[in-house]
Design a protein around this nucleic acid. Sequence first.
DNA 1: CATCAACCTGATCA
DNA 2: ATGATCAGGTTGA
Length: 258
Amino acid sequence: MILDLDHTLGCGQVFRWRKEGDEWKGVVDGRMVTLRQTGERIDVSGMSEERFAIYFRQDDDLKAIYEELGGDEHLSSYFKRYQGLRLVRQDPWECMASYVLATNANIPRIQGMIEKVCRTFGTEMDGFYAFPTPGQLLDRCERSESCGLGYRSKRFIEMARLVQREEVDFSGLMSMGYEECVQELVRLPGIGPKVADCVSVFSLEHLEAFPVDVRIRKAMAELYGMEGSYRTVNRLSREKFGRWAGYAQEYIYYAYGR
DNA sequence: CATCAACCTGATCA
DNA sequence: ATGATCAGGTTGA
């Protein structure tokens, strides 16, 4: 199935993949992964083909999504321009923790904070660091002071505590409906409506979620005249795009940031 | 429900 | 160069 690594890993949904020359490097399941795309072909090392297919959501019928949403003038143009941009199946803990850190900071800073956290707490492999497990974080949580996380630090550590104690039921959140999932997520420290939507769509299989950040808010206002509270823009967008709203959001976000 | 200031701090702007 | 403003929001009132 069609997949474009540059769009998929560069659109902003993931924070830690890096392109070095023509290779994408990242960590999946605590393993270093290297990817190289030449045309349609992708060489994979460090992960199985099966794991690759799951991680890059090869089970989503992208052509069907394009057809279902292609009636929209803006999306149809984005689909042509950024063909092969896919959502990724992120690890729920890493996704949740990363987006808690990502609140009210710009992308360079977000990447800096996450990189510092990985270097401070994560397992090292060939100069690359894995995202820390909740246990690694809690073992030396006083070190988080040197990571420049600001007021996110407390929320980050508290989140690790909840996950470590298994008080966050990821598989339960995946199997319940989108609305209920969001309702549960916003009870957690550092998670408001926006982060709840990000976690829902990027790691909990709720592809109808539609995160509204400042960039998307601007885009939805300019493209469709949608304005109002988070709840309003979110609801109108989900009504407009339906079950694949998450895909629509990612294309709009990417297109609007360029 | 909607609104709003306060919040850490590195990037970016003027 | 340097002070103001902004940045993929959340919280509590």
